[in-house]
Amino acid sequence: MPRSAIASERAVIRAETRRRWSLALPALTVITLCSILPLVVMVGYSFMEKGQYGNVEWGFSLEGWRAVILEKDFFDDSYIPATAHLTILGRSVALALLTTALTFVFGIPTAWFIATRSPSTRAFWMFLITVPFWTNLLVRTIAIQEVIRADGTLNRLLLATGIIDEPLQMMFTNGAVLVGMTYVYLPLMVLPVYAAIEKFDFRLAEAAYDLHASRFYCLRKVVLPLMWPGIAAGSILVFIPALGAYVTPRLMGGGRAMMWGNLIDLQFGQGRNWPLGAALSIALTLVVLGAMVWYIRRVAKGGESIG
């Protein structure tokens, strides 16, 4: 090919590339403004000095990050590991895992039920599942409070039927937090799993029965492996927001058992330690990122070994 032809071809490719980038511009703008920029601000804040009345002051400091890991001893000002943070992180992870597990247990049958209805009634059931999404999180949480508080619906029902003699203390316990979290995040599990089940070709289940598989064997070897992408997506969608959950633990747990989200809130509020708050936020993001990489790798491998 003559040199000029190569040059003109390159020019065409360049023009084409430019055109594609300009098409992607709106999306890139949104991503930059809403995702990358706040993240950059938070990373920046975490390396600044704290202001006396909150906010940050210009100047590089590792104090924020130091405080994530180490705290000053109350008596002799020496640094000791911030075990309280570790406990809170552990509690948050445990809560997020339990929430994911519970939404899984309740979400799979729910999704299965909806996906196996007739197409016309499916829309109705999906509508019921998505209704809570239109409602403010606070309102939803207070609604579930109303059900389980000392003189709430559930206690009154149990008292009236004579199953219990005095109201059960359900509010402000770890159980209450878990109930609230499961309730709030259930749709995030149901939706992707529903999509996976809806796509499932039930003729495959028929083929499995025909090939001497019991119902359980068919579920384990055919149905679950093919629903795996939906289950993985649902688990990630529940686990990530659950890890940073703030409103629900606070309202349902009464602030007694602090979660990572509450810890961050504290630093930006009463604690007036914005660099520490920012560092805690970024730390959580890193934990989530690590967990996701591990999970996706495991699922990808798992999918193959199952297959």
């Binding site: 003729r203 495959l204 028929e206 083929a207 499995a208 025909d210 492996p225």
Partner: peptide, 11 residues
Amino acid sequence: TVFQSYALFPH
């Protein structure tokens, strides 16, 4: 049975 759609397990 050999099914019309074959119904092979895709995974």
